[in-house]
Amino acid sequence: MEKIMVCLKRVVDYNVRIRVKPDQSGVVTEGVKMSINPFDEIALEEALRLREQGKATEVLVVTIGSADCQQQLRTGLAMGADRAVLIESDHDVEPLAAARILLKMIEKENPDLALLGKQAIDDDCNQTAQMLAALWDRPQATFASKLEVNDGSLRVTREVDAGLEVIDVDLPAVVSSDLRLNEPRYVKLPDIMKAKKKSIETIAIDSFGVDTTPAFAVTEYAAPPVRGKGIMVDDVAGLVDALKEKGFSL
């Protein structure tokens, strides 16, 4: 393979406790830590390992979002990406529009592999990789936990409900990473300093000629229902009694 394109999304850090705004217009994102979506970070790590093993020559990271996303691209460069592109947008972009934009990037960059996280931990959509593969008319290997490069194809192990599914996909292809594909590296300070010197290419989202107006209307954000407080029992007999009271006879 020559080029791998990795798509990153800037999201609220996974350690942040999410709170819905009192007026139900969204979740609180002001002043909270933002990070690369963890699944995308895994995708990037996999691309870097492939390059380090000599199975790819260039790793390009791409994101769609506000100018603030430069932070996450910088992290990507510090991890080891060769180039970074910010497709700048002042509004949230739905997965289908994101896939259409990413397809334009693919047409421009001709990567052999597009690597994405299986889902973003903010909207939890789990769509972009599949949509990109459909629009590109190329194979998709979602929920990847192992990736093996063969001549002109990939052998991908996928985490599915029934166990592990192994498929072969011809290149070019789209792969989405699951949690166990790898453990991303820690970024070292010298790499952060070096990454500051690398340039980030910025492209205005409108320049692609893709309509990115949201198709869906989100009319309300609500906190999830809370479970009622339970009881504590002292011993197994108490536990069995409590279960019987709830109608369980095991």
Partner: peptide, 8 residues
């Protein structure tokens, strides 16, 4: 951690 209402 949040539930959204979405209109198609």
């Amino acid at each position: 951690n949040a539930i959204v209402t979405v209109r198609a």
